[in-house]
Structures are given as structure tokens and as C-alpha cells.
């Protein structure tokens, strides 16, 4: 299937560019491309509901929020070491040490890939998808039935979680000194 490789390539390249960009606005947009490709993969996996939810929730809500924050903070470019030295948030000694954690991160990620590829290579030929099972996973009705019966407690808990997150976000992002009361409106 050519489509799998197209979507996989888009997802990987876009994700790589997300972390290679210095401008967060471009990062956010490239992440949308990556998530769009993932949504295509969900369609290939007979999960149209997950594919659409991926677009609605990630592209339509979460990444809009990111874009909003990037635009409002108006700090598009990542600080370089010179900026940090000027801001006196780091000194010259730490500046020299900063390469360490980065190298460590890259090494960790590479090691992770190598390990996973090694492990996955040992299970060759496993997990061919059964075409007959396509209908049982693609049905929205089936998802709804399981979600609202077997997982109903978890579902209710997520609603509380979202409420808490909403209140928390409002409290955290509010300015500390109380703004003067707005003029009374009708």
C-alpha cells in the first residue's frame, strides 16, 4: 500500500521539522501536517471516527490554542545563548555546559530507536490485519456502546478533568493584580 508510506513519510518529516524549526508558528503548522497524516493512517486502519476526532480535537482545538499563545506572546524566535547572557538568566559557565543535555537527549532518542527497531525486527511477520475484522472496529455505534458502558466511569472522570483543567487554566493565566473593574454594561 503506497498510501501508508506517503502518510508515514509526511508524518515523520513534518515531525522532524517541528523540532528543527526555530519559529514556533511554523512548528505548530508543521505539527498540523503531521497530525493530518496520522489521521490518514487512522483511515487506513479502518478507524474513521478516530481520524475525524484527531482533526477536530488536535487541529481544531489544541493547536489553535498553541497558535493563539504563540501569536499573543509575540516571541516568535527561540532565545539564543547570546540573548540569555544578555538577560543574565545564565552565565558564561552554564552556557558552555549546555551542549551536554542536548547531546544526551539525542543519544537517548537514537538509542530508543535502535532498541525498538531491534525488538520489532525479531517479531517479523506478526500482526497481519484481518480484513474481516474491519467492520467491527470502524463502526461508530460500537465505539459509542463500549464507551458508554464499559468505560462510563472513565468517561465521567474525563469530564471532571476537563472542568478542573478549564478552571486551572483561567486561574493560572489571569493577571495577578486585579484589573480595574470594567464599566457597567447593560
Amino acid at each position: 500500500m503506497l498510501l501508508f508510506y506517503v502518510f508515514a513519510l509526511v508524518a515523520v518529516v513534518a515531525s522532524l521539522l517541528v523540532i528543527a524549526q526555530r519559529n514556533p508558528v511554523y512548528s505548530v503548522l508543521l505539527l498540523i501536517a503531521s497530525f493530518g497524516a496520522l489521521s490518514g493512517l487512522y483511515v487506513l486502519l479502518d478507524a474513521p471516527f478516530a481520524a475525524v476526532i484527531q482533526i477536530v480535537v488536535y487541529a481544531g482545538a489544541i493547536l489553535v490554542l498553541f497558535l493563539f499563545v504563540v501569536m499573543l506572546l509575540n516571541a516568535p524566535h527561540e532565545d539564543t545563548d547570546e540573548d540569555l547572557l544578555r538577560l543574565k538568566t545564565i552565565n558564561a559557565a552554564t552556557s558552555r555546559l549546555r551542549g551536554g543535555p542536548m547531546l544526551f537527549g539525542v543519544a537517548l532518542a537514537s538509542l530508543f530507536i535502535v532498541e525498538l527497531l531491534w525488538a520489532l525486527n525479531r517479531v517479523t511477520g506478526a500482526g497481519r490485519f484481518d480484513p474481516a475484522a474491519a467492520d467491527s472496529v470502524s463502526s461508530v455505534a460500537a465505539i459509542g456502546r463500549v464507551l458508554f458502558t464499559d468505560y462510563r466511569f472513565a468517561f465521567e472522570v474525563t469530564s471532571v478533568l476537563i472542568l478542573v483543567a478549564m478552571v486551572g487554566a483561567v486561574v493560572l493565566a489571569r493577571r495577578e493584580e486585579a484589573a480595574p473593574a470594567p464599566p457597567a454594561r447593560k
Binding site: L16, I19, A109, S110, F112
Partner: peptide
Amino acid sequence: ALLFAIGTAGVFVR
């Protein structure tokens, strides 16, 4: 796994 590794690298590198 590739995507997860990219994400991990991003957290450390950026």
C-alpha cells in the same frame, strides 16, 4: 517508535 523518538529528542533538544 520513530515518531515517539522524534518527540523525545524534541523535549531534550529544544
